[in-house]
Simulated assay, not measured.
Amino acid sequence: MPPVPAAAGSRYREVRERASYAALDVEEGVVGSVSGGCVEAAVYDLCVQALQDGETVLQRFGYSDEDAFAVGLTCGGVIDILVTPVTGPAPELREALAAAARGEPAALARVIRGPARLLGTALFVRTDGSYKGGLGEHPDLDRTAAAEARALLDAGRTGTIELSEDGSLCPGGLTLLVESSVPPPRMIVFGAIDFASALVQVGKFLGYHVTVCDARPVFATRARFPEADDIVVDWPHRYLRHTETDARTVLCVLTHDAKFDMPLLTEALRMPVAYVGALGSRRTHADRERRLREVGLAERELRRLRSPVGLDLGGRTPEETALSIAAEIVAARHGGTSVPLTRTSTSIHHDNGAPSMLVAEGALD
């Protein structure tokens, strides 16, 4: 696999796109997809072959390869496909599937490069560092791999790590893909207004766990927000102060009322969350900034505020406004420029050239 950019001083190589999975069962057929269509037929053939000979195989497809062109990989880039036949109990895979179904954070570390006898072996790792399965013969290998996988899991990242067969951290023959499965990121929408209803729907579409919070019980009701995961009746700043957030959390302030906005934004802009946006006109924003400075927020904190919230799409309706906000959230998450692609010549996907590691299971028991 070509080098994947890593943060300075890090021994982890991050896979910018989450690993994708497909499964082939001899009786039930194909479930899932690994490339959105480019190499599906070729992967199917690999799976059939793996089921017949019982061997794990790693196959690369690249734009310059004749085989890749033949199977339709015309969009460029590199795809590595790991096909693992599953014919026995595979307790580590069962544990991973069960944890994912329960929404529990867990990681699966799999050997994607190394000796043939280890290729495809897997280790299921929990948040407390305990694990199930095994990667090799050396007793230190599983312990080291579990510790490294837990570090990636704590950060909610999928990536690769380099280890030696004896479990030392010196790169020496093994590459592990660590797939972290974590609960969905949170979107907290403050202000139970019509715009919030549209934003809840878009947030759910993007895969967020969406909470609506408003201090007014007459507006914060299940009837008004049937698609929200949680509806909270509380003062926004008080709820934010005591609820769980992380570096993936996005906060959308739609209350448009200073008595709610000021204490809420004072809390929000000092928290290590991914995004803080606030609805309002430019005049409202200027007054909001003045008030926030008066209560002591620093300029670096104020620069985190996305206000007026959203990208300039020219829309007016709640649905159009929700789309504008969601577009800004996606751009902020991936480092997008928000410039029309027809006016740019850079890569469409902001992954710094990092390839995706795509994994196909040979069969489900």
Rank of each mutant, 00 (worst) to 15 (best):
P2L: 15
P2T: 15
G9P: 04
S10W: 03
R16K: 13
E17K: 11
R18K: 11
S20Y: 03
A22K: 02
D25G: 14
D25S: 13
E28Q: 15
G29T: 11
V30I: 14
V30T: 08
G32C: 12
S35P: 04
G36Q: 01
A41C: 05
A41Y: 03
V43D: 00
Y44D: 03
Y44M: 12
Q49A: 15
L51S: 00
V57C: 11
Y63T: 09
D65T: 11
A70K: 13
G76N: 12
L82C: 11
V83H: 00
V86K: 06
T87V: 14
T87G: 08
R94Q: 13
G103D: 09
R117C: 07
R117T: 11
L118E: 04
V125Q: 00
R126W: 07
G133R: 08
L135G: 07
H138C: 06
H138N: 14
L141H: 15
R143M: 02
A146Y: 06
A146G: 09
A147W: 05
T158L: 06
G159E: 12
T160D: 02
S164Q: 05
G173K: 14
L176H: 03
L177K: 00
V182P: 01
P185I: 08
I188N: 01
I193Y: 00
V200N: 02
Q201D: 14
Q201K: 13
G207T: 13
V212M: 09
R216Q: 05
P217D: 14
T221E: 10
D230P: 00
W235E: 07
P236N: 02
P236H: 01
R238M: 06
E244Y: 11
D246M: 01
V250W: 05
V253N: 13
L254H: 02
A258V: 07
K259C: 02
F260W: 12
M262Y: 14
P263N: 11
L265N: 05
L269A: 12
R270L: 09
G277A: 08
A278K: 00
S281N: 02
S281Y: 02
R283Y: 04
H285I: 04
R288D: 01
E289M: 15
R291K: 12
E294A: 15
V295I: 13
V295P: 02
V295W: 04
L297Q: 02
E299T: 12
R300D: 15
R303Y: 06
R306G: 02
R306C: 13
P308M: 06
T317E: 07
E319W: 04
L323Y: 07
A327S: 14
V330E: 03
A332G: 07
G335A: 10
V339L: 12
P340M: 09
L341I: 10
T344E: 15
H350S: 08
D351P: 00
G353N: 11
M357Q: 07
V359S: 00
E361A: 06
D365R: 15
